[in-house]
Amino acid sequence: MAEVGEVKGEAKEVKKIATRTAYGKALVELGKVNPNVVVLDADLAKSTKSGDFMKAFPDRFFEMGIAEQDMIGTAAGLAAAGKIPFASTFAVFAAGRVFDQVRQAVGYTKLNVKIGATHAGVTVGEDGASHQSVEDIALMRSIPNMTVIVPADAVETQKAVFAAAEYYGPVYLRMGREEVPVLFDEDYRFEIGKAVMLRDGKDVTIIACGVMVAPALEASEELSREGISARVLNMHTVKPIDREAIETAAKETGAIVTAEEHNIMGGFGSAVAEVVVSTLPVPVEMVGIKDVFGQSGKPAELLEYYGLTSGNIVEAARRAIARKAGKASPARSRRSRRQ
C-alpha cells in the first residue's frame, strides 16, 4: 500500500524548477559526501546541468565529447573499477542512440552505472521531434536489471539522485528541460519502487509519473468539483513498479487512468496495465502520446496538442469510470475510448 505523501499547500505561490536543474545541484551535493561519484557528459553539460559538478569537482568530471556510445562504455569501465558514474545526456540519446551500449555494458553486466537522461518528452519544445524522446521509458524498462525512475519535481529529483547512488545497479533517471511546479517539501520521503499516494479517492485512481504528476493533481481537484473522488498516485519508479499500490487502487477505486509524457505504447501506461490485467482487471485509460513523433513548438502548446493536460486526464477519468462494470454499455464505452 502506498503511503499518503504531503503535497505543498495550495495557498503558497507555486515555485517552478526544472528537474534537470535539480539534477545538477543534487550531483554536487552527492559529490561532496561520496568521493566515488564521478560524472560524465557528452558535450551537453551546460544543458543537462552536469556542468555544476564539473565546476565543483573537475577531477571527477569527464567530458566525453559528442560520443555517447563511448560515454556509456567508459561509464561501465569506471563502474567495474568501483566508481559510481552518472552518465548524462539527453534522453533521446541516452536511451535511443546508445541502446545497445546500455543493454550490453550496463544492463547485462548489472554494473553500477546511473544514466542521467534530461530533456525527455515533448516539453523539450522548439528543438522538435529529433530531440523529443517519446520512447525511452519503453526502451529502458525492457532491459533486464534496469531500474527506471521518473521524478515529478525538483525535490523528488534530488532524492532520486541520492537513492540511485545508494542502490547498487543500473538506474535510468528521466528528467525534463522545462520548469515544473515544486510539489513536495524537503521532508518528502522517496523510496525506489514505492509509489506515493498524493490524494486518496474512491472512484478512480490517476497514476502518473514525471511532469504529468502536477496535472494529475489538478485533474483530481477538477473531478472533485464534479463529485468524483480521484486518488492520485505518484509512480516515480516505473521499474520495478509498485504492484501492490496498483492492485490496491484497482480493488478500491475500480478504474485507473495513467498519465505519461511518452508514447502510450510500451511505456508507463503499459507498465501499469501489465499489472492490472494480471491482478485485478479494471478499466484503464491511458493519457500519453498516441504513437506519433513530436514537433517544434512551445512546451505548453505541445502538451496541449498531444493531449497531455489536466483536462485530458479529467476526460480519461470520466471514460474510465463509465467503463466500470454496469456503468455503461460496451458500445458506448468503445465509442468514447476512440476520442
Binding site: V38, D59, R60, F62, Q69, D70, M71, I72, G73, T74, A75, A76, G77, L78, A79, A80, A81, G82, K83, P85, Q101, Q104, A105
Partner: peptide
C-alpha cells in the same frame, strides 16, 4: 566495438585511485 571504451573507464579509474 565496446571493449576499448570499458578499458578506458578502467584506466581512468586506476589513475583516479
Amino acid at each position: 566495438g565496446q571493449g576499448l571504451s570499458a578499458a578506458n573507464g578502467m584506466a581512468i579509474a586506476a589513475k583516479l585511485d
